[in-house]
């Protein structure tokens, strides 16, 4: 090991300051709130882990957590296969490529709250194109009153908004496969399914890990769109953790429980992402350890 060069710390200092102000100090503030109770202004009492116990044992938290898990599961089950399918169907050369890429990028460029507003209006039964048409066609559709309709609306909206991300990631994985792979498979007489299963899927695995992680984290943290479209309703049907958290912190001003809940929320996302990442990169790790012998 080399000896320490103290001057080097000056080079790292700006980054440390930035990270401190943007992440560490806010996080510590939350930790601080989560272990104290306050009455009125600036009177704080140490309560230890009481808020954590309260949040973890509350039915309200369990229900919101279950909604989040269900929502993320549905989103991943739809968006990942659909994204791969669309990417496979996209052209690999010619003018069609840029057209497709621009079309795919469009939903990603729209701000979350605008997406929410678009769908909120689009799905309204009185004036929205979708809601009105469905009603006229005889469907009993109303996302402000029916739980299932609200969920379907949110899922379709998220699929519309975020499948593009999976498409673009999968597409980048697909175009990086040298044409020789496909030729070799053709010469072998491999079927379309075999080409997908043994060439395209393995070659896309790395980008799919990223896609699954991003889509899990984003869908698990979803806030703006359901807030704009359903406002958490009907009833509590679409009250996800994030919406519940904001209600608690800003609506009811229960800073202690809200801080405890956000820490738990944060740890859940961290944990699940870590599990996903570890499981999906297991094969890489195996391959990596085997490489030493050759």
């Amino acid at each position: 090991m080399k000896s320490w060069n103290n001057k080097a710390w000056f080079l790292v200092l700006p980054v440390l300051l930035l990270v401190a102000f943007s992440a560490i100090i806010p996080l510590m503030t939350v930790v601080n709130y989560s272990v104290q109770d306050s009455f009125g202004s600036n009177e704080f009492y140490w309560v230890g882990l009481e808020w954590f116990q309260e949040v973890l044992s509350s039915e309200r938290f369990h229900n919101a957590l279950m909604r989040n898990l269900l929502f993320s599961a549905i989103i991943l089950l739809i968006e990942i296969p659909l994204g791969i399918a669309v990417a496979l169907a996209m052209p690999r050369r010619g003018w069609g490529v840029s057209v497709c890429l621009v079309l795919m990028a469009l939903p990603l460029l729209i701000p979350w709250n605008v997406v929410g507003t678009i769908w909120q209006v689009f799905a309204r039964v009185d004036i929205g194109l979708l809601g009105y048409s469905l009603t006229q066609l005889g469907f009993d559709y109303n996302y402000t009153q029916d739980t299932l309709d609200a969920w379907i609306t949110l899922i379709v909206m998220d699929v519309w908004h975020w499948t593009s991300l999976v498409v673009l990631l999968s597409y980048s994985g697909l175009v990086s496969i040298p044409p020789a792979y496909y030729q070799a498979a053709r010469i072998d007489g491999a079927s379309r399914w075999a080409v997908f299963r043994y060439i395209q899927l393995p070659k896309m695995r790395r980008v799919l890990v990223i896609a699954v992680l991003l889509r899990f984290m984003d869908s698990f943290m979803i806030y703006t769109e359901p807030f704009v479209v359903t406002g958490g309703g009907p009833g509590n049907a679409t009250t996800f953790l994030s919406i519940d958290l904001v209600q608690m912190a800003i609506g009811q001003f229960d800073l202690g429980p809200a801080a405890a809940m956000s820490l738990i929320y944060f740890l859940i996302i961290l944990l699940v992402s870590w599990v996903f990442y570890t499981v999906m990169t297991q094969q890489d790790a195996d391959a990596e350890s085997g490489r030493g012998h050759s």
Binding site: P178, A180, Y181, Q183, A184, Y198, I199, K203
Partner: peptide, 8 residues
């Protein structure tokens, strides 16, 4: 081929 083409 010049590239090493195998099923990964």
């Amino acid at each position: 081929y010049q590239q090493f083409i195998n099923y990964p």
